[in-house]
Write a protein that binds this DNA or RNA. Structure first.
Lengths: 202, 202
DNA sequence: GTCTATAACACGATAGAC
DNA sequence: GTCTATCGTGTTATAGAC
């Protein structure tokens, strides 16, 4: 008894997700160049031939993951911007959300893949151009919040770019740390936020 | 006219350094698995056959670099411990030195290679065991300074492990950032150190 | 000490059976 | 839709000329 089109579609979607999930694990561990299609297939418990049934190439597979990652990375940020409250409130909420997701380790692989994508030049052209749009400036993205906070006097009067760089570096570093060291204690949001608040208080 | 043994030795040392230097650039950019011996040779402007004259394998080449990197990474730390002054003085000096070296970009490649070595499992067994000795605990290394500082009341009374993790994550993140984004403005030491100083002042 | 040529092999990608 | 068998390329590593 033949499957109908609807069932086929469900199977295809499931397989695609299965492969993307497996690929994110392997890519995060071994990088773009170090990843073998056969390892991805093994992780997904499917044959390596099937990978090419769903994706044109290893590069495309990597591209899809970076796209997914960069979409997700903007979620926390836009959420933060919708929150009622002062800039510092928004930053606090955003930080807590990011730390939770690092702690929980759910989308950690995607995070690391984005870092790889921007540090390694072993990645396809298509990917780097995608990144210059989105990832190139998570720093720029939080800049407005910092400046607004400085105007209200709730954020310290340092160079806001330096503040943003330090903040983003810490997030990146924590994600990397967490992947390598599972039991790594993730700091509380209040520690990260101390970057922004002046010593003398306000 | 034949070269004598001394001249030969000088040539060998020079070539070895030349290859290690080139390899650190390529490994940092493309990772262990992504690095091709021919690329290293090209970077060093030598033939790829010569690489195998000086190193047994790609893995050994990588191993030598990680060893070199882990030796260097302890330098800033031990220097800091020799400084006369309070724990916060020592941390300040250490931070300034590390930021200078990131800013200057001199040993950045080695730094990134160490991060790769600990995040990727595409590295040889020999390397990971080397790392568990040295790199596994730069966090542990600064812990005593933090605790001493807390006793003197010059460092905030948060969980010192969380403080150390946050600090080290920021350093790592800055190094990674700098490699990908050459003009990245490196924050002043005072910004990083704000992690450690209490909001209310002392 | 340095190079070029080549052996041996691994991996990405495809073809075709079921 | 999924698998196994296979091709072709490119890479590690070696051999041997200079």
């Amino acid at each position: 008894m033949p499957r109908d089109e609807h069932q086929n579609r469900e199977i295809r979607d499931a397989r695609r997700d299965q492969l993307l999930e497996a690929a994110s694990v392997i890519f995060a561990r071994r990088g773009m160049a170090g990843t073998k299609i056969s390892d991805v297939a093994k992780e997904a418990k499917l044959s390596h031939g099937l990978v090419y049934h769903y994706f044109n190439s290893k590069e495309q597979l990597f591209y899809e993951l970076v796209k997914k990652a960069s979409e997700r990375s903007m979620v926390s940020l836009t959420k933060a911007l919708e929150v009622e409250g002062t800039p510092l409130d928004q930053l606090t909420l955003m930080t807590e959300e990011i730390l939770r997701s690092i702690e929980h380790g759910n989308e950690l692989h995607l995070f690391v893949i984005m870092i790889q994508a921007s540090t390694s030049d072993a990645v396809p052209e298509q990917v780097t151009s995608l990144l210059s749009d989105v990832n190139h400036s998570p720093v720029k993205a939080i800049l407005p919040m910092l400046i607004a906070g400085q105007e209200r006097g709730e954020i310290v009067q340092d160079d806001p770019v330096q503040l943003a760089v330090a903040y983003y570096a810490m997030i990146q570093g924590l994600a990397i740390n967490k992947i390598q060291w599972k039991e790594c204690p993730i700091p509380k949001a209040s520690i990260l936020l101390r970057l922004f608040t002046s010593k003398g208080g306000e």
